[in-house]
C-alpha cells in the first residue's frame, strides 16, 4: 500500500491555513499546519514532511528564515518547498540573495491567492517529482 504524503502548511493567517487545508483535504494527504517559522521548524523535527507550503511574511521567523534553515540542515535540505505568498517573486528572490548570498532554493513559487485546481495540480506535481 502506498504511504500517504504528509504535507506541512505554514502560514500566520488562520484563514489562509483553513482555506488551503480545505482544498488539500479533497485528496488523500496527511496534513498539518504551523503558524510561523519557529513552529514550522518544531514540527519538522517531529516528522519530516514530503512537502512544505510556505508563507513568507510571518512573525517570529519569516519564510526566508525557514528556507535558510532548511537548506542548511542536511535532514531537511531535500524537502520540496512551495512558497505561497503575496510577495512578488523577483523582489522575494532578491531579498533572499541579499540576506544570505545564495539563490533561493524553492521548488515552486505561487502568488496568493492560488486557484484551488491550480494548487492541487502543483502539489501533485511536486510530490511526484520530489519523491
Amino acid at each position: 500500500m502506498e504511504k500517504q504524503s504528509y504535507i506541512l502548511i505554514v502560514d500566520d493567517d488562520p484563514d489562509i491555513r483553513e482555506g488551503i487545508l480545505t482544498i488539500l483535504e479533497s485528496q488523500p494527504y496527511r496534513l498539518a499546519a504551523a503558524c510561523d517559522g519557529k513552529q514550522c521548524l518544531e514540527m519538522l523535527a517531529k516528522e519530516t514532511p514530503d512537502l512544505v507550503t510556505l508563507d513568507l511574511l510571518m512573525p517570529r521567523m519569516d519564510g526566508w528564515g525557514v528556507i535558510r534553515e532548511m537548506r542548511s540542515t542536511p535532514k531537511y535540505s531535500q524537502i520540496p518547498i512551495m512558497v505561497l505568498t503575496t510577495v512578488i517573486e523577483d523582489a522575494s528572490r532578491r531579498r533572499y540573495e541579499l540576506e544570505t548570498g545564495l539563490a533561493m532554493d524553492v521548488q515552486d513559487y505561487v502568488q496568493k491567492p492560488a486557484k484551488p485546481a491550480d494548487l492541487l495540480k502543483r502539489v501533485e506535481r511536486l510530490l511526484s517529482v520530489y519523491v
Binding site: 484563514d15 489562509i16 482555506g19 488551503i20 503575496t86 491567492p113 492560488a114 486557484k115 484551488p116
Partner: peptide
C-alpha cells in the same frame, strides 16, 4: 488574499 482564497 484570505478572502479571495475562501471564495475560490
Amino acid at each position: 488574499a484570505a478572502i479571495e482564497n475562501y471564495l475560490q
